[in-house]
Design a protein around this nucleic acid. Sequence first.
DNA 1: AATGAATGAGATTTCATTCAT
DNA 2: CATGAATGAAATCTCATTCAT
Lengths: 193, 193, 193, 193
Amino acid sequence: MATVTRRIGAESSATRAAMLGAAEALMRDEGYAAVSTRKVATRAGLKPSLVHYYFPTTDDLLIAMFRRGADQSDAMLEAALSAPDPLRALWDFFADTSRTALTLEFMALANHRKTLRSFMVEHSEQMRERQVELLSRLPALADSPFADCPPAGLSLLLAGIGRALVMEGGMGVVGGHAEARAFVEQWLERLRG
Amino acid sequence: MATVTRRIGAESSATRAAMLGAAEALMRDEGYAAVSTRKVATRAGLKPSLVHYYFPTTDDLLIAMFRRGADQSDAMLEAALSAPDPLRALWDFFADTSRTALTLEFMALANHRKTLRSFMVEHSEQMRERQVELLSRLPALADSPFADCPPAGLSLLLAGIGRALVMEGGMGVVGGHAEARAFVEQWLERLRG
Amino acid sequence: MATVTRRIGAESSATRAAMLGAAEALMRDEGYAAVSTRKVATRAGLKPSLVHYYFPTTDDLLIAMFRRGADQSDAMLEAALSAPDPLRALWDFFADTSRTALTLEFMALANHRKTLRSFMVEHSEQMRERQVELLSRLPALADSPFADCPPAGLSLLLAGIGRALVMEGGMGVVGGHAEARAFVEQWLERLRG
Amino acid sequence: MATVTRRIGAESSATRAAMLGAAEALMRDEGYAAVSTRKVATRAGLKPSLVHYYFPTTDDLLIAMFRRGADQSDAMLEAALSAPDPLRALWDFFADTSRTALTLEFMALANHRKTLRSFMVEHSEQMRERQVELLSRLPALADSPFADCPPAGLSLLLAGIGRALVMEGGMGVVGGHAEARAFVEQWLERLRG
DNA sequence: AATGAATGAGATTTCATTCAT
DNA sequence: CATGAATGAAATCTCATTCAT
C-alpha cells in the first residue's frame, strides 16, 4: 500500500470522486449525451480544465464511471450470494431503480463507444456467471416450472423482466407493471428456501 | 380528425422520407446524439437548411421519426393479432432485432425530451392494451403456470425478455441466451393452440 | 457564368476574400501556426463561426490560401514570359520578398499537412516547367558558363538563390547578400538578349 | 567565460538530452507547432512537469534545441575546413538532408520568436564567416566564372542551392534536381584543388 | 418550396505556466 | 530533483436556429 505508484487522479482523490459523482448524476438526470466536460465541472463546482486533467478524454471519464458502477453492482451481487433468501436478493438487485437507469444509458452509449462496449460485455458475462452460481444453489427450483430452464437462462429472464419494470417505470408507463411484479413476487415466495 | 392542420412538408414528400430515413440510419449507427441537422442533411444528400424547413426544431424531427417507427410497430402488432399462432407472432415481434436498437436510443432520449417522452408513454400503453387483447384470447394459458399472471403482466414479461435478448445480443453478450430462448420456445410450443 | 452553381463561400464573396487576406497577413507576420479561426476572424473583423462556415476545416482554409497565392505566382510568371527581358523578370519573381516569405511558411507547413503538400508539389512542378519554357528561349545562355546546365537545373539554381536572399534577408542576416546579389545582377546584364 | 552561471539541469544530464532528442524528433515529424511541454514529455517517457523544470519556458527549450543543432553544424563545418577537398566537403554540408528539415522549421519559427531569431542570425553570420575562410583558400576559383564573386557571396549561393535541393526533395519535387546537382558536381570537379 | 449567410453557444481537447510539496 | 494539482486561455469543430431572399 505504501509503495503504490501515484498516478494522475488516484482512485482515492476526493476531487476525482466528486467528478464521477457529478457525471453519474448528469447521466441519470439528462442522459448520456449530457456528460460533457463543462457540465460535469459545473455540477461538481470545479473548473472544466480540471476534469480534463483527471480524465484526458471523454472515454476515460465514461470508463471510470462504468467501472465505479460495476464495482457497486459486484458488491451488491456478492451480498446477494450470501443473503438469507438469495433469489429475492437477486431480484431486488435487478429491480433496483438507481443502478438500472444508468445501465440503460450505458447500453445506449455502447453503440458507439467501442472501448466502453468491450468493458461492458466482459462485465455482463462475469455477472451472469456469478448469478448462475447463485441460482444453481437453489434446490426449490427443481420442483418449479422453471426446472426446464438452466440457471444462465433464468438469469437472463430475471434481468430482462427487472430492466423492463425499471425502464418503463422510469418513463411513466404503468400498464401491466403491478401484475408482473405480483407474479414475480408470488414465485419468489413459493421458491423461498 | 377532419381538422388536421396542414403542416409544412407534407407527409407524402419524398424529400421528407429521405430525411427521416437518413436520421434513422444515423441514430442506429451512431446513437441519438448524432441526429443533427447537418448530419441528417449530409447523409440524405440535401442542404442543412432544407432539414430545418421540413422540421423547424430538432424535436419535430425526432417526433416524426418516432411516429414512423411506431406506425411500423403497430402494423406488426395488428398482423400478430390475426396470425394463426398469435402468441408466437407476438414473441417474434418482441424478439425482432430491426427495431430494438432504435427503441433503446429513443428510451435513452426520452430522459431529456419531454414531448417525445409523452408520445412514447402513450404509445407504449396503447401497445400493451392491444397485447392484452391478444393474450386474453388464448385459452391454453389457463392450464399453464402463467395462469396466475394477468395478460397485462404477461405482456410486460415477454417484452422484457425479448428486449433483453435483442439488446444484449446486439452488444455481443451471449451467456444464457440460448437457454432463455429455448425455454421460451418450449412454452410457445406447449401453449400453441 | 449565369448558371454557375453557388457553393458555400463562392470565390466572389467579399467576406471570403477578407478572410483569406487576414489569414495571409497573419501567416506573414506571425508564422503558419498563427493561422487560427479566432485570429483570422479577429483580424478580419468577423466572428470565428463565420470562418468555419466558409472553411469547414483548417485544411480547407490553408488550401484556399495556397491556391490564391499560387494564382498570383502564376500570373507573375506569365507576365515574365512575355517581358522584354524575361531572365530579369524571372529573377525579380524569385527575389520578390512578399511572396517568398509565405512560400517558406507553406513549405514548413507541408511537413505535416498531406493534402496541402500534394497541392504544393504539383504546383511547383508546373512552375518549373513554365520556367523551362522561359529559359529555353534565351539564346545568350549558350555562350555562358551555364550552357552546361539544362534549363530545369537553372530554374532550380535561381529559385534557391532567390529564396536564400529573401529568407535570410527577412531574418536579418546580411553577410554575403550584397556580393551574391551583385554577382547575379552582373550575369543578368551579360545575358540580356 | 570563467563566470558561467550554473543553470538548472546541467548540460550533461541524460534526462535533458532525452528531452532535447524528443523535441527534435517532434519538430522533424510534426512541425514546430508540435513542440509542446506535454508532447515532449510523452515522447521522452517523462512527466510534463519535469520538462518545465529543465526548461522553464518554451523559449528556453527551443533555444537549447537550436544550440544543440548549431553545435553539430559547427563541428561539420570545422571538419570541412580541414578536409582534403574543402569545397566538396562544404557542398556536402549544404546538401545534407539530416539537418535541413529542422533548419526550415527554425526559420519559420524565427518569425515570431524574437530571442530565437537573434541566436539564429548570430549563428548564421558566424557560419558564413567561417565559410569565407574556407573559400578564400581556394586558388582554383580565380580561373572560374565565379572569380567575380567574393567568397561571402559564393557561400550564400551554395547554401541557397543546397537548401533548395534538400527542401524541395524532401517534399517530393523532382523537376530540375538531377540537372542542378550534376551542374554543381561538374564545377566541384573542375575546381578541385 | 428552397437556400445561402450569419451567429452565439458549447463540446472536446491541448497548452503554458504556476504553485506547493 | 522531481512531481501532482490546478487553472486560464485558446484552438478546432459542431450545433441549432434565425433571417432574408
